[in-house]
Amino acid sequence: MEDLIRPIYQERASHRNTLGILMIEKKFNNSAITDTFDVVLLVIAKETDCPVFIKHYTSKEQKAALYIVDEQKLNEWLLFGSNRKVIDWVLNGKVLFDRNEYTQRLRSRMLEFPAEARQLKMGVEFAKLIRRYTDGKVFLETNQLLDAYNHVVHALHHLARLAIIEQGFYPEVTVWSQVKQIDAQIYKLYEELVGSEEPLDKRLELLFLASEFLIHSRIPSGSAHLLKVLKQKEGAWSIGEIASHPELEAYSVDLVIMLEYLVDKHLLAIEEVPTKGQNVFHRYYVALNHS
């Protein structure tokens, strides 16, 4: 395998825009971490023609994968958790090349998990949690039990990730192993959902009730980032202003459901601004100050 990967990483290391190269080898007890490949090379580049470039190689019945990822895409994955394997790769991969200690500094930043990045990540997870919980509850009320089950599983997953982030850690691929050590209550809920012999409708009713309490208890941490941004100016915000704010782009399609949830919980107020139409108003949002 070394004969296969050496020329690959040596070539990439010679490129001026290569910031770091990591090698991740297949684990006997978890081949999924490398998508069953014997080895993965992760090349982090300053700038690339496309955000992600992939090549596959084979030699003597062994297979290798090369990922060239630009720095912006990598940071997006780390922020949104949209490619959780990469978190494991960056934290645990063997460093083959490290320009100006870029990889070491990246790892240190991830392990320290600065408060500002952690607050944003909690906000994004909380918004996804609200989306899954709200949609799942509608499915339960309309007796669409399998769809409700699917949504509550995802809601618990986001709740688990939120609990992990609150403790200052990045959620990894094995989220439930992490949360078992951090928040036994969430882990127990998940066990009850997937392992209970109760009828599915009864399980779901109990899970939604329990989840509602746990979600409510995380409103302060989950809403802190969004409310901080909305308090940057006095007065009300239109939905257009909120959606286009660069610090809130990460909330994406879950932004509106998050806003409505915070209105319902009296953390945001609605201000009606007259339009040219009679009895028609623009709906503006105001962050409330709570002592």
Rank of each mutant, 00 (worst) to 15 (best):
E271G: 01
Y102Q: 07
I186T: 03
I164G: 02
E172R: 15
N17K: 10
K26V: 00
L206W: 13
W176N: 14
H290P: 09
I242L: 04
R161M: 10
E241Y: 09
H266W: 07
F37D: 06
L288A: 02
D201M: 03
S252R: 14
P7A: 03
H158S: 15
P51T: 09
F213W: 05
S223H: 02
V263G: 03
E2A: 15
A243S: 09
K265P: 10
F139K: 10
K137N: 13
A32T: 06
A155D: 06
I54L: 03
K137Q: 13
V179W: 05
A160Y: 07
K228W: 14
V153D: 07
K276T: 04
H225W: 14
V153K: 08
M122F: 06
G195L: 08
E249W: 11
E197T: 13
R105N: 15
G136C: 12
L120A: 09
H216D: 11
V86Q: 02
Y190H: 09
H15T: 07
K228M: 14
A117Y: 03
L162R: 06
T36R: 09
N150I: 03
E272H: 15
H245R: 12
L129V: 02
K231F: 08
V138K: 09
V90K: 02
A115S: 10
P220C: 03
G222P: 06
K63C: 07
A184I: 12
D201T: 02
K94W: 13
V286Y: 02
V263S: 04
K233T: 07
R132H: 08
H157A: 12
I215L: 13
V153Q: 09
E234T: 01
D201A: 04
I44G: 01
D3Y: 09
A224T: 05
Y187G: 05
K265A: 13
I239W: 09
Q72T: 14
S14E: 11
